[in-house]
Simulated scan of single mutants.
Amino acid sequence: MKRVLACLALMLALVFPAMAVSPDEMLSDPALEQRARAISSGLRCLVCQNQSIDDSDADLARDLRILVRERLVAGDSDAEVQQYLVDRYGEYVLLNPRLNEHTWILWIAAPALLIAGLGGIWVASRRQSPPQAGDDLSDEEKRVLAELSQTQAGKADRA
């Protein structure tokens, strides 16, 4: 029974994402804290790379979480906080890159490759026509084949 409970506890611990925000980082104002969480969930940990700074235990992620909260306390809007971090660390800090002149290929490449691949498959399937029976047979072979077909049809009718 203890093993079952231990396994359930372990599974529950793995199911919920690890929130790395420590209590000393949290703001006393719940509205500002909610805004800070919303902003930091869209920011990439530059150490962990595909983890938000909200989920990361890295020191840099902690520094970024504190920086987000400092900017919010200073009166910056959500967009200003994001732009401040983009100006400082580059657009890579955003988990979802913006659509602009130097990221359009990221947004267009996948659908374009999918369409090109489907088009290639369609063209290849249209080019291959199944060979017709008797296309490459001589006249004598065609006559023998017709006789065999008639013989087989006659046997089928009698059965």
Results as ranks from 00 to 15, higher is better:
M26Q: 08
D24C: 06
L145P: 00
V4C: 11
L145K: 05
E70S: 14
D135T: 09
L67F: 02
D135E: 15
D59Q: 09
S125N: 08
R69S: 00
A18T: 11
G90C: 01
D55P: 00
P131W: 00
R69K: 02
D59P: 09
R88Y: 06
E141D: 12
V73L: 02
R126P: 03
L67Q: 09
L67I: 02
V68E: 00
E80S: 03
A109V: 08
A146K: 09
G75D: 04
S28A: 14
A20W: 02
I121D: 06
R143Q: 15
S52A: 14
L118N: 05
I53S: 06
A13Y: 11
R71G: 01
L113M: 13
Y92R: 14
A20Q: 04
A6H: 06
L14E: 10
G134E: 05
S40D: 07
Y92C: 07
D87H: 07
V81K: 09
Q128T: 11
M1R: 09
D78P: 03
L5V: 14
P23M: 12
L14R: 11
V93R: 00
K155R: 12
L113V: 12
A109Q: 11
N50C: 09
L60A: 10
R65Q: 00
V93H: 00
G42M: 12
A159L: 13
L145H: 04
P30N: 00
V47Q: 14
A13R: 10
L64I: 14
E33W: 02
A159D: 13
E141C: 03
A159C: 10
K155N: 08
S129A: 09
I39W: 07
D76K: 02
D136K: 07
V73K: 03
A124F: 05
L94K: 03
R88W: 06
E140P: 07
V15N: 04
P97N: 00
E70F: 10
L12D: 05
A112L: 15
D24Y: 05
L14N: 13
R88A: 13
L43H: 01
A18Y: 12
V81L: 13
A6I: 09
D87S: 14
K155I: 03
A38K: 14
I121Q: 08
K155M: 05
V68G: 00
Y84R: 07
A153S: 08
L67C: 04
S149Y: 05
D78W: 02
K2H: 11
V93S: 01
A20M: 04
A36L: 03
W122N: 12
A9D: 09
L94R: 09
L46A: 11
A74I: 01
A61S: 10
T103A: 02
D135W: 10
Y92N: 13
V47G: 04
V81H: 10
A61V: 02
P131N: 01
L113A: 15
S77L: 06
V81Y: 09
L85W: 03
I39Q: 06
D54F: 14
P17R: 05
R88M: 14
R126W: 07
S56N: 05
G42L: 12
R62C: 06
R69D: 00
A36Q: 04
Q128W: 08
S22D: 12
L106P: 02
S77Y: 02
A20T: 02
D59H: 08
Q132K: 11
A116W: 03
Q51H: 12
D139Q: 08
K155G: 11
N96E: 14
W122K: 13
F16R: 14
A61Y: 00
A9V: 08
Q51D: 07
A112G: 11
A156H: 08
M19F: 10
